[in-house]
Write a protein that binds this DNA or RNA. Structure first.
Lengths: 202, 202
DNA sequence: GTCTATATAGCGATAGAC
DNA sequence: GTCTATCGCTATATAGAC
């Protein structure tokens, strides 16, 4: 899909919406506020998005791109175990932002699930992106229950993010990530002889 | 504080707000909708609550009462380990509702933290209620790191609730609770000789 | 493509009769 | 205490000049 409009405006609107939604929730920011933050005149928003919901949909895709970029970065690592630990450490590293606005992805997904049923599948896709990637790593470590482990990892991260933000405690986030780090280590790699083959089965 | 108004109306308003907020989020339900659901005439809401935010504050207190009632029920059990497992199983038992609207407490707290700064401390209290109680149980089992264990337990529950609701998968919630059950068992009780004394020392 | 001006509707909140 | 009527405001969305 090619956009023949003046470059930047659409992207600025999405970025401004992403920022404001992250800070104040999905419902609070008005189109006027988003337009102002993006340095776009209020009425012009509707040239790019027919409805507010359409802007939210674009915002989710924007976040999906960020998630994919993050995971691509992690894929540079050789060791699946190191990849998984670095994923978790992403939340520890941004513990202060997590405390201020919660986990960007988790909050966005859970709010959209409640308030915009039609965006729920798209929001679920954001989480699935992380889940699928983690499952792949655990599978490469030879764990037959890779999906369950991925769920536990991501659930642990998301739960810690909720508690940290509600209780305003960045150390809580960091401590839980440290615990998940140890958990990943203690899992070891099952059947290390054929771990590379395990990727192929099922 | 005694209310000399006709009994029921205030309570009905709070209950209706609780239900609608649980279903559609903190910001979406209008006072008109809440009043209608509570069978109260729209203008009459302001006799009981000066502002919308004041109604939300009452809603949080309503939830706090429910949390305390839940924990009191669990306290009837003799064994702290059984208490903790039954706490977790509360979410498994309501997995279908969790999938539909997320964890009532977790969603409420995390949304209020973002959208109503002045209610954030009150919302944090909701989570602390659960955390303090869990910490007490772990301490009675003789764990010196009881607070950290409580955080892990509640984080695991909240994270699973997010994933289950976003992915629309009740079994995910149930499986994670089962895992937490086993985790509680595997923790055992530290220094079981003096576990009852451990409650006393800090 | 961009902007101003505005239509339309619904919100939270108030006033005042009963 | 309860209700009706309504104020004042701001939201999303549209129309049309440029």
């Amino acid at each position: 899909m090619v956009w023949i409009t003046r470059p930047g405006k659409r992207e600025r609107l999405v970025a401004a919406a992403a920022e404001l939604v992250d800070r104040h929730g999905v419902e609070s920011p008005t189109l006027a506020q988003i337009a102002q933050a993006a340095n776009v005149s209020p009425g012009n928003v509707y040239y790019y998005f027919k409805t507010r919901e359409e802007l939210l949909a674009a915002l989710v895709e924007h976040r999906r791109g960020e998630v994919r970029a993050l995971l691509s970065g992690l894929d540079r690592r050789r060791d699946p175990r190191a990849r998984l630990k670095e994923l978790a450490e992403t939340w520890a590293a941004s513990a202060d932002e997590v405390v201020e606005h919660g986990c960007t992805i988790g909050c966005l997904a859970s709010q959209l699930t409640k308030t915009h049923a039609c965006l729920a599948p798209s929001a679920a896709g954001l989480i699935e992106e992380l889940l699928d990637w983690s499952e792949t790593q655990f599978r490469q470590l030879g764990h037959p229950d890779a999906r369950a482990l991925a769920t536990t990892l991501l659930g642990g991260i998301q739960g810690a993010a909720i508690l940290a933000s509600v209780l305003q405690d960045p150390d809580l986030m960091r401590r839980e990530v440290r615990r998940l780090d140890r958990w990943i280590d203690d899992l070891g790699s099952v059947d290390s002889r054929s771990s590379s083959l395990r990727v192929l089965d099922h």
